[in-house]
Design a binder for these strands. Structure first.
Lengths: 283, 283
DNA sequence: GCGACTTTGTGCATGCGTTCACAAATGGAT
DNA sequence: ATCCATTTGTGAACGCATGCACAAAGTCGC
């Protein structure tokens, strides 16, 4: 399969799993997105998931805001200020921070530097997480050159593709290797996160190679539901899904207006021949 | 993926995904509000949010799977089969489909073509949603050329950037316009979804222009919390956040191993001097 | 040192989403 | 025509996340 840009249409679209939320995604959600794209997991082990996934995602946002604050010379910040900057409820923010620990001073607020340090510790950002990008098409190129990764502790250390013309070509400073070398290269370069940007048909195979190379965390941009061992974490970003969610809101809004601003009325099931479009609004 | 507002997927982040989360305002929560939550305070409308955001995200996934099935000539499918293909619980899948309506046949399953039609109707995919991409950098280029959009009813009809060298240059078949023209061009080309791929500092200004151009739905790739009117829907995809969430899992896993596979013990608050790293695992 | 003020941290209630479990509905076989 | 096997659709239980409201804790000024 040609792992390369373009991505033939008419292909076989597949399925991801929610983000959100979880997304996520973007996720699943989306969840939504975020999108904890992974089937149950129902073992006995009962992971006492210390920090809610949703909180973890927000912590990352707080961290960015805090970094910006820090650069501006802000030394202390209250939950109220930080929550506004991050676009969340202040109570939620405090609760999120409480998962990290009690590092605030009542009557004063939080010391920015301390908070940054602690959140980074929780998120495992104290040490660099090497990442590998597979599928050097449009998106892969963009990610390989994306400055946001290395500057935040995620150095791109490996690139892979099937296109022979790309072998040995430097992209964003890294030479492209063949996907057959994924396992070996990832293991030797200690890759902890793999990013899949291949066409859908190639995604699962690539995923398997990454896993065999010791990669336990995967960020998947291919619209496919990946099958992985229980100990591998997959997050999915599905652009088409994101667009469709927005599309849903456009449609919903249109209906609202059409129905006169208060779509109430249960047409549940009774209707066929929707004529134009009658999105059933449940009550 | 991190999604903000809309979704779910993750409150601020996303989850996408993920983690699907609740819609949150970018509106500053000031103390004077007696408005509970944020759902539409002022008016009476009280939108009985027909379909949970998380379900919407999954419907998009089902749609993709169904399309694939259809192309393979599958005419009928049971909730069990579909749920496996989509990577979700079958009960959840049935409930999701029930939001759309009752189009299944007990003892048999669902007719693929009917399901596709109905889901497309709900998601507002019966008519094309024109999209505009702002910020033609690496990511913008990738999106402009991304085949997954037009083929799914999301034609890219406008591109914008500030770089003079890009003006009039065709990218993916569309000529690039200057961001000052956003309002006018979006209005005339009837853009319903705007995609922001600009550097963080430019995001808010671009967002404002899109809104003034009549765009009510925005997909934001810039790591910034956008401020928008209540009637504008924003979804956020934050790659750095996605990476950090994965990083968190890497770290958690490492701790687990270090603690002997079942980190239980609430050191909540009592600890300082974490020595190395002691992610508190709550119970 | 004391009192007033500010802000954190969290118990609790609420609401949403997930999952279970089963009655209802349908096709096919006898 | 009736029974059996199958699968949908959904009421209800459960669990997690959100948001509120307040006591605890600490600062500042006098």
């Amino acid at each position: 399969m040609a792992v390369q840009r373009g991505r033939g249409r008419g292909g076989v679209p597949n399925s991801p799993a929610d983000a959100v939320t979880e997304p996520m995604p973007a996720v699943a959600t989306n969840g939504t997105n975020g999108t904890p794209g992974r089937p149950v997991a129902g073992d006995v082990r009962e992971r006492a998931r210390a920090i809610p996934e949703a909180a973890v995602a927000r912590l990352a946002v707080y961290l960015r805001v805090l970094s910006a604050m820090s650069e501006q010379g802000v030394g202390t910040i209250s939950s109220e200020e930080l929550s506004v900057a991050a676009g969340v409820n202040s109570a939620k923010l405090r609760k999120d921070l409480s998962y990290v620990g009690s590092y605030g001073t009542r009557g004063v607020g939080y010391e920015v530097s301390v908070l940054i340090e602690e959140i980074e510790r929780i998120l495992g950002l104290t040490r660099n997480q090497a990442i590998a990008v597979v599928g050097i098409g449009n998106l892969g190129h963009a990610l390989a050159n994306y400055g946001g990764f290395p500057s935040r502790g995620f150095p791109v250390v490996a690139l892979f593709d099937v296109d022979e013309d790309l072998m040995g070509v430097p992209v964003g400073g890294i030479l492209v290797n063949h996907i057959d070398e994924i396992g070996q290269v990832c293991a030797s370069r200690d890759v902890s996160i793999g990013v899949i940007c291949t066409p859908p048909p190639a995604a699962q195979a690539v995923c398997d190679r990454l896993v065999s190379g010791g990669v336990r965390c995967i960020l998947n941009f291919a619209p496919v539901v990946l099958q992985v061992p229980d100990d591998v974490e997959v997050r999915k970003v599905d652009l088409a899904v994101e667009m469709q969610i927005l599309s849903f809101h456009v449609a919903r809004r249109a209906d609202e207006v059409a129905l006169g601003r208060d779509g109430r009325d249960k047409t549940l099931n009774g209707s066929d021949v929707p004529g134009v479009d009658g999105v059933v609004v449940r009550r």
